[in-house]
Design a protein around this nucleic acid. Structure first.
Lengths: 335, 335
DNA sequence: GTAGGCTGGGAAAGCGGTTTCCACCTAGTA
DNA sequence: TACTAGGTGGAAACCGCTTTCCCAGCCTAC
């Protein structure tokens, strides 16, 4: 029926002032006497009162909204992180979701939206690019957001001056390369993702570095989108070449999955490795060799930092990846 | 820097009243003279003004927040719908995400949260259960939400009195059964999901109905969670039995994927079919027979209804599923 | 020439809360 | 007993913005 029950109605019904009602219903420093407290609670209960969080946000000058900005909620990498972050935020806050569809300028837009909302925090899961102008603008926007009393946490970018959860992409990719060579692989290709994406670049560099330690180098490096379809296309392109490497590293799992689809389609035999260890991998066959990142932990950590009181100095949590060798790179003993 | 620029500051700088400034920065009925308009816009620009959406929501008595409530954002079924809905909402609204972790009472909580927020709309993606008490409570909460001026759209439940996008589960499953029998399958098992979930039940019933039309019936029906792991467990259990059917219908794709994992693990040969046609299926091998639901369309339609002006009468959009036969149920010519 | 209608600006009253004061009452202390 | 301190309730200011009035000036019409 009617519209929203207001605090004023509760106060009236309980026969107390607005101030008292407010103190009871949404706890404050001030203690309210038991008699009054009960009356207010009863009234609130009877009327089915729920606080208007907007009004609270305006009055308090802050809100409990946490903005989560991801490139694509359908990508398992991001949805795992989102789900984990959600679990942390949910008990005491609310989550506003923004997806950039992998367009950088959207990141900027969301940060200012969040500032306008006086969001308590914003968590950005993104990837640093070679576009320094954008990085600088984003860093500025984040600085403003923080100056305005918000908390900013970034996953995967390290140049934004915010609290950060940073996967050690380079080291992980290097370890992977070492492991693959030690497994007996001899020729390598890299599906390198977008050339503008530094996350991808770090992984490529790390991989090349690892190969170099064993006196090898990739015979081919192809760029494409950072998505399943990007992996598929790049691998198809690679398979069109005269000679193909025996082992291909795709810089993330979704690309690797796309690459495997291309491989399967052509009925060729080629080893594929990915990066991230998204849960989806449990069900791809052959099982995919990858570098495991603790995605859930990353989401949780980011959200925890976001919910913390701001004020302390910048924190950077580095998470390292663990090489997981599986069937997709198992070398058949022959030839 | 410092904190937020307020409209009052803009007005002062432009040398106009608050009212005029307000009218300029977010267009109202009232026209503002060109001279003043320019001055205000310039001032807003210089100061980097962004409207405080909370304050706007309080003043206007409504907001542009659309709440999206899903059981699990990691499940591809929901993330596809979420992404599609997001694309529709994003240009003119903001999306608040709620995940229930498949716990019903959470649905209720979110609906009232959204009411408190005076959200413009709430989109619930859920599934009707046998818990009539809950269904009734939810319907009441939704009715209140709507009475308060909000718009409610539900995907997959038909008893809530809200605008609805309703997959024809029963018909789809029936068609699937017919197709499978016609393909030559003779003995069937069903991984039926939770017995309390009516979506699952509808699919089971439809499938049984289809079989019946061909004079057959399932030899075994097992219940489990509606998740990948649920499918895995149920299939494992099924495979432990003395005799196993030649073809198993899992009531959704993620369960089917889990089931296939179990099948693969044991190295047995058994046909598996799912329901939904989530995008993930592109990369499972063997490719999975399923009933395709236009998930993106469903998300878009729901979001469109949510963004519409409320007021017209209840709309129910039924979407039907299309049987897609793939390798997982291809019968090898032998025996 | 003047009444009546537009136009467009500003003052101020909300919107639903929170929070700062201030007042009052009851103890506690010397 | 007088005075102070602490605890607790209420009035009112305030958060940032929208919107209703009110009013001044100007144009048109008779």
């Amino acid at each position: 029926m009617g519209s929203q029950v207001t605090l004023a109605q509760v106060a009236e019904r309980a026969g107390v002032s607005l101030a008292t009602a407010s103190r009871v219903v949404n706890g404050s420093e001030r203690v309210v006497g038991a008699r009054f407290r009960e009356r207010v609670l009863a009234a609130a209960e009877e009327l089915g009162y729920t606080a208007n969080t907007f009004a609270q946000a305006v009055a308090r000058g802050r809100s409990d909204v946490v903005g989560l900005v991801v490139p694509d909620i359908q990508d398992p990498y991001f949805s795992v992180i989102a789900a984990a972050a959600m679990a942390v935020v949910e008990p005491s806050g609310e989550m506003m979701l923004g997806t950039t569809l992998r367009r950088q300028e959207q990141e900027l837009r969301y940060v200012s939206t969040m500032r306008a909302r006086q969001a308590r925090a914003v968590i950005m899961v993104g990837s640093r690019t070679t576009d320094n102008t954008h990085t600088r603008q984003l860093a500025e926007a984040i600085a403003e957001f923080v100056a305005g009393g918000g908390r900013a946490v970034v996953i995967g970018q390290d140049k934004l001056g915010a609290d950060t959860v940073l996967p050690l992409n380079r080291a992980g990719a290097k370890d992977l390369a070492l492991a693959l060579v030690d497994q007996g692989h001899r020729s390598f290709g890299i599906l390198a993702g977008p050339s503008t994406l530094l996350t991808a670049k770090d992984r490529v560099d790390g991989f090349i570095d690892g190969l170099a330690r064993r006196g090898r180098r990739p015979s081919v490096i192809l760029h494409s989108d950072f998505t399943r379809d990007g992996g598929y296309q790049a691998m198809s392109q690679l398979l069109d070449r005269r000679t193909t490497p025996g082992c291909v590293f795709a810089v993330n799992d979704v690309m690797a999955i796309g690459a495997m689809a291309a491989v399967r389609e052509r009925g060729v035999k080629i080893a594929v490795a990915g990066f991230d260890d998204i849960p989806t991998l449990r069900d791809v066959a052959p099982s995919l060799t990858t570098v495991r990142l603790p995605l859930e932990d990353m989401g949780r950590m980011a959200a925890s930092m976001a919910m913390d009181e701001p004020g302390e100095r910048r924190r950077v949590i580095r998470v390292k990846g663990e090489v997981i060798l599986r069937d997709s790179t198992t070398l058949v003993r022959n030839a």
